[in-house]
Design a protein around this nucleic acid. Structure first.
Ligand code: FES
Ligand code: FES
Lengths: 159, 159
DNA sequence: TAATACCCTACTAGATTTGTCAAGTATTTA
DNA sequence: TAAATACTTGACAAATCTAGTAGGGTATTA
């Protein structure tokens, strides 16, 4: 339950790749596609949406690609997902546009709203910068593992 | 984004109605259907799932219906939704059964897992008993409004 | 045996998801 | 200017999921 569509998932991963080029190295769709194993054509759709939303800008021609319009610390996962999948809306009848004649006296209405707010709050605190840091941690951990493995091998305890 | 299906939504609302009959008054599908404005046929599917999961038991024949198998304070929204919609799984590639060869070194993996855990934790703290209390609050508020309205009307300030 | 009420499976129209494809436009470099 | 790179856009479609409906069955009570 409560799945995110691939568009949202790929979108965040793509933004993470674009963030790696911050502040001035344009990252091409091709590069993102290769690194994140997502098709170029599908990424085009996703990045196009994010560009129209103003989260990234594009540079055409050879050497071109996408650039973050703001610092990685100022782009939260919440805003990326909001552009690609719309606002958090656990139950469709919470949407003020769609409306629901049962809202008043509905015991679950408050519940879904609280949950939605909690999710939104959480995703708003996580930024691209956090993901970049996370990767550094992952890489450090891998490096550490590698060193440990090498040391073990050198000590004849490999395996 | 992060929508709940109607099955989950109706399921919680149905369980709320069943909870009203706790501990010994069976609540029929018909009654639930009327109160929650959901079709009988659809509710049959939903309640059948919940019964097989052991959350409710059924009593056949005239005067029959459904009963909670445990106290309302011991049935969380999380377990109801889990039975109807499966476990929280923000991204499908987090599911250990489906698997994903990119898990290691994937920056979003940790993110989705954290979010999933947060959601699960929240939904686990809310029980049917909370919904029952909530309704009492709602009714009290309505009663209060009604009294105020009556007093105003009596004082010639109605509207 | 009539009425009530749960039980179960199958089916389906419509929406959504998850992409692909084709034909552009803009920019740079040779 | 020609070629290559790379973004831009809109149309389209297979696959899946959602949100139910339909219809026949079983158990219980009066
Ligand atoms: S708000 Fe629509 S049913 Fe609760
Ligand atoms: S875990 Fe599958 S892509 Fe991140």
């Amino acid at each position: 339950m409560l799945k995110l569509s691939t568009k949202g998932q790929y979108g965040v991963r793509a933004m993470f790749e674009v963030a790696k080029g911050y502040p001035d190295r344009p990252v091409s769709i091709k590069e993102i596609a290769r690194r994140q194993e997502v098709s170029v054509a599908y990424l085009e759709q996703i990045l196009s949406t994010l560009r129209r939303a103003g989260l990234i800008s594009s540079v055409r021609g050879p050497g071109g690609g996408y650039l973050l319009t703001h610092g990685p610390a100022h782009i939260s996962i919440a805003v990326i997902l909001r552009e690609l999948e719309g606002p958090v809306s656990i139950a469709s009848c919470m949407d003020p546009e769609e409306g629901c004649h049962r809202v008043e006296g509905c015991v679950t209405h408050t519940l879904w709203r609280s949950l939605g707010e909690k999710i939104d709050a959480f995703l708003s605190t996580i930024t691209l910068d956090d993901l970049l840091k996370d990767e550094r941690l992952l890489m450090d951990a891998a490096e550490h593992d590698r060193i440990v493995t090498i040391k073990r091998a050198a000590a004849g305890q490999g395996g």
